[in-house]
Computed example of a mutant assay.
Amino acid sequence: MKFINKLLLIMSFLSTSVSAANDVYGTVDELYIRSGGDDDSYLAFRINVLNDISNFESCVIDRNNLVWKVDVSSPVSKYQYDIIKESYTNKLPIRIIGQHKLCDKGNVYSDKVYELSPWIWDYHLQEEDLSSRDNGN
């Protein structure tokens, strides 16, 4: 039994160290897009942060104005853009996980998107549908 308890303790420490990154929830509030030649394309955004459930690295200077950058050369950047655009247009919440070891660079104002996903969109869309039915739409 002691072995299992030690193993669980070790696993919890490992999972904590692996998940050390910005893990933020919110809705996209500002969107920045630039399309140019010679690797001059740019996609970034800011969100209205849900502070109660978001976690930030200690090196983030302004948590509510953190700029998130998307790697436009990534094969999933089009899908990420679609999620960002949907969140921006319909105020649907997303979850963003930033790059690991962000604080190795010192204090920061931005982070690169490591993982991006819709967050409980089904629930929000059902609530919106029910609300529009109640209003006679």
Rank of each mutant, 00 (worst) to 15 (best):
E128P: 02
L116N: 00
G106C: 02
F3E: 13
D23M: 09
L7A: 08
W68K: 02
A20H: 09
N55T: 05
V18E: 04
N64I: 05
L102D: 00
Y32D: 11
N64P: 04
L102S: 08
E30R: 09
Y114F: 12
N65Q: 12
G36S: 05
L125N: 11
I84M: 02
G26V: 04
Y79V: 06
Y114G: 05
N135H: 09
R63A: 13
L9D: 15
L43Y: 02
I97N: 02
I53C: 06
D129L: 14
N137W: 10
E86K: 14
S73T: 14
Y109G: 13
I61A: 05
S87V: 02
N137C: 07
L130Y: 11
S19V: 06
S132Q: 09
V28P: 04
A20I: 05
S77L: 01
K101V: 06
D104W: 05
L116K: 01
L92F: 07
S131C: 02
S15Q: 12
V67I: 13
C103T: 11
K6F: 08
Y42M: 07
I4F: 11
D39Y: 13
H100V: 14
K112W: 15
T27L: 01
A20M: 11
K105S: 12
D62G: 02
K101E: 12
I53G: 09
C59R: 01
L130H: 08
L125C: 03
A44P: 03
N51R: 14
I33H: 00
L50K: 14
S110E: 14
N51S: 15
Y42S: 05
Y42A: 01
P93M: 06
I96N: 00
R46I: 05
S19E: 10
D40H: 10
Y114R: 12
L7Y: 14
S12G: 06
L9P: 04
D23L: 04
D52P: 04
N55S: 08
G37D: 07
Y81W: 13
D82R: 09
I33L: 15
I83F: 00
L116P: 02
T89G: 00
V70Q: 00
S17H: 06
Q126C: 12
S87Q: 00
Q80W: 12
D40A: 09
V108H: 04
S110L: 06
V49C: 02
R63I: 07
D39P: 01
L7W: 14
I97D: 00
D39G: 07
S58H: 13
L50R: 12
A44N: 06
I84N: 00
I53A: 02
R95E: 11
L66M: 08
C59E: 03
V113L: 01
K101Q: 07
Q126S: 14
N137D: 09
V76W: 09
E57K: 05
I53R: 11
R95Q: 13
F45W: 05
S73I: 10
K85R: 14
G36D: 08
A44I: 03
Y25D: 08
V70C: 03
D23H: 11
E30V: 08
I120R: 12
D40R: 04
L50S: 10
N107L: 06
S19K: 03
R46D: 10
Q126G: 02
Y109N: 14
L9W: 08
I120S: 10
C103Y: 08
N64R: 11
L14A: 05
H100Q: 15
V113S: 00
F56E: 04
V28K: 03
R133C: 01
C103I: 03
N65F: 08
S35M: 15
N22I: 03
G106D: 10
